[in-house]
């Protein structure tokens, strides 16, 4: 997308100079205790939390989403998939809120085809927090069928309210289980994931000087 990126090692302690932070999936810490629970205490996370609290854009994908839940930057927790299996397949998700830095290149109701690959993607939160998520339009993506209808059978992992992705109340931190980065390159026939990165870029333009392409 013509932007420069920098890989930050978990042992580092600064995110200085970054315009946005992406926490990828990958389970490099294993899933001891719970998914993301050990990674949440890696040295870099203090800086990530501070960056998020200052309004910086943070996107957590898959294990990155689970880490964000463990930090408390996003509410709720992950349970084992209802069917107990690791699920690796393409899913459809519906954009429920297009007024976010992560979805502004979409419109509400837009259906994205994105792959999932996880064993613990069964999002759970208590009824009070769920009501707050619903009331504040913090549910950004829901699993749906290919026509954009949110149905129980299109929910791959048992997530409460078909939730595939949520944002924080301030709207600068998003976590989602599907993988937009796995379908964002021109070599793939499906590039739906690109819309999320384009949205982030669009929302950053104007706020910060971007390098010339």
């Amino acid at each position: 997308m013509g932007q420069s990126s920098h890989l930050i090692w978990h042992q580092e302690t600064s995110v200085q100079g970054m315009d946005a932070i992406l926490l990828p999936g990958g389970f490099s810490y294993g899933d001891y205790l719970r998914t993301g629970s050990i990674a949440r205490f890696s040295p870099i996370m203090e800086a990530v939390i501070q960056f998020a609290n200052q309004g910086g854009l943070v996107l957590g994908i898959c294990n990155g989403f689970q880490i964000l839940l463990e930090t408390g930057l996003l509410p709720g927790a992950m349970l084992r998939n209802t069917e107990l299996s690791f699920i690796c397949k393409e899913t459809y998700i519906r954009v429920e809120n297009a007024n976010t830095p992560f979805t502004k290149s979409c419109e509400v109701g837009k259906v994205l085809k994105l792959p999932i690959a996880h064993a613990d993607g069964n999002y759970f939160t208590n009824p009070v927090d769920l009501s707050a998520l619903q009331a504040n339009a913090q549910i950004v993506f829901r699993y749906c069928d290919r026509d954009g209808i949110v149905t129980p059978s299109s929910n791959p992992n048992g997530s409460i309210d078909n939730i595939a992705g949520i944002q924080n109340a301030q709207g600068n931190v998003l976590g989602l289980m599907p993988h937009p980065e796995r379908c964002a390159e021109p070599i793939f026939s499906n590039q739906d994931g690109r819309l999320i990165f384009e949205s982030m870029l669009t929302s950053l333009i104007g706020q910060i000087p971007l390098p010339a392409k």
């Binding site: 205790l33 719970r34 629970s37 709720g76 927790a77 759970f124």
Partner: peptide, 8 residues
């Protein structure tokens, strides 16, 4: 802090 997640 670490061993349990009191959400669940």
């Amino acid at each position: 802090k670490l061993l349990a997640n009191t959400v669940i």
